[in-house]
């Protein structure tokens, strides 16, 4: 049950930033609330101040201009999925967003919130931190800094593959205007210590304003999730691929990003290196999948995820060029 807190609902970005504390955990940003409220009910988050940012105009909506699709941080996943330019240009992002949560969650959850959500690790969510963690069936196969949770965002790997960045409002300048900075989505994440250090590099009083995705002609992308449930579930493993292919069919640029295998979304660099300069076929995709899974550190409970990485990467690559072989189509 939620402990008492002060609720603020500023109407300007400036006031919102001013309402947030600079120390971690003292205040929280409320957008869709689909993650925050659950954290508060379980007393994993016990903020003194909750700052609603939904009353701030211009934080939601999608603009297409200058070769970029700019997605307001407060845009709901439902609005994202239904946007014509997003559907046309960012099919892999639509695929990830459409498979996320349930209709009710997609109607309230926001794009900014999806990037800032906290991890779903059982131990973290139960407020437990035993010396030996045995139940790692959904956990990281690339642990980092001693952490075994996986990053939950399924939009992040796709956004990284598309080369997206976020615009962040961070403080106010001397003229009283909010300052912003731009962070590539790839650099947005860090390994949380499950205490003050969050899963994102943002300061506690920074707010994501928008997500900016470049639209590049000839980029072919796909996203694959292996799941237990068709409805409302987290992937066991996710792979996103965005390929730039020249007229001869040669891959000139390959972005391959994995989700749900590490405490941050991770680039499969070995796979990317293998792909560039070659023409994609089933054999190359299989090799790339193997390369992506190399170096996994598993336990008997999550060993199966290594094999899933191989398959997911292979499918994301072939799927990007329209070869959905696994469906037998």
């Amino acid at each position: 049950m939620i402990s008492a807190f002060t609720y603020k609902s500023p109407t300007t970005l400036k006031d919102a930033i001013a309402s947030l504390a600079s120390e971690p955990g003292k205040s929280e940003v409320l957008a869709g609330g689909s993650d925050l409220l659950a954290l508060m009910k379980d007393r994993i988050a016990t903020p003194e101040v909750v700052v609603n940012i939904k009353s701030i105009p211009n934080l939601s909506g999608i603009n297409v201009a200058g070769g970029k699709i700019q997605i307001g941080a407060n845009t709901t996943l439902t609005d994202l999925i239904e946007h014509a330019a997003v559907k046309k240009n960012l099919p892999a992002l639509v695929s990830a967003a459409r498979d996320l949560g349930s209709t009710q969650i997609r109607n309230v959850a926001t794009v900014g919130g999806n990037l800032c959500q906290r991890n779903r690790d059982w131990y973290f969510r139960n407020g437990l931190n035993p010396e030996v963690k045995e139940e790692l069936q959904y956990s990281s196969i690339f642990p980092m800094e001693g952490q075994v949770y996986v990053h939950p965002s399924t939009l992040a790997p796709v956004l990284i593959a598309y080369g997206a960045s976020v615009t962040v409002a961070s403080g106010v300048d001397a003229a009283g205007k909010e300052k912003t900075r731009e962070i590539p989505v790839e650099k947005l994440f860090q390994v949380s210590d499950l205490k003050g250090k969050r899963e994102v590099v943002l300061a506690p009083n920074e707010i994501i304003v928008s997500v900016n995705v470049p639209v590049v002609d000839g980029v072919k992308a796909a996203e694959i999730e292996v799941r237990e449930r068709q409805s409302h579930d987290w992937p066991l493993v996710q792979a996103a691929a965005a390929l730039t292919v020249d007229a001869s069919g040669t891959i000139t640029k390959a972005n391959v990003v994995l989700g749900h295998v590490a405490p941050v979304p991770v680039r499969a660099s070995a796979a990317e290196k293998l792909l560039v300069g070659k023409k994609l076929d089933a054999n190359l995709a299989t090799q790339a999948g193997k390369a992506a899974s190399e170096g996994a550190k598993t336990t008997p409970k999550n060993e199966y995820k290594t094999a899933l990485v191989e398959v997911a990467v292979k499918r994301a690559l072939l799927g990007a060029v329209g070869n959905e072989y696994w469906k037998g189509a």
């Binding site: 349930s102 779903r120 059982w122 131990y123 139960n126 437990l128 035993p130 010396e131 030996v132 963690k133 045995e134 139940e135 069936q137 959904y138 237990e228 449930r229 068709q230 409805s231 409302h232 579930d233």
Partner: peptide, 25 residues
């Protein structure tokens, strides 16, 4: 149903990770 061996607590005591199918499943 998954119990943590170290603490004996149930780890998936919710409807998110104690999974029940919905219509699509």
């Amino acid at each position: 149903r998954v119990l943590d061996q170290a603490t004996g607590r149930m780890l998936n005591a919710d409807m998110e990770f104690y999974k029940l199918g919905m219509l699509e499943d």
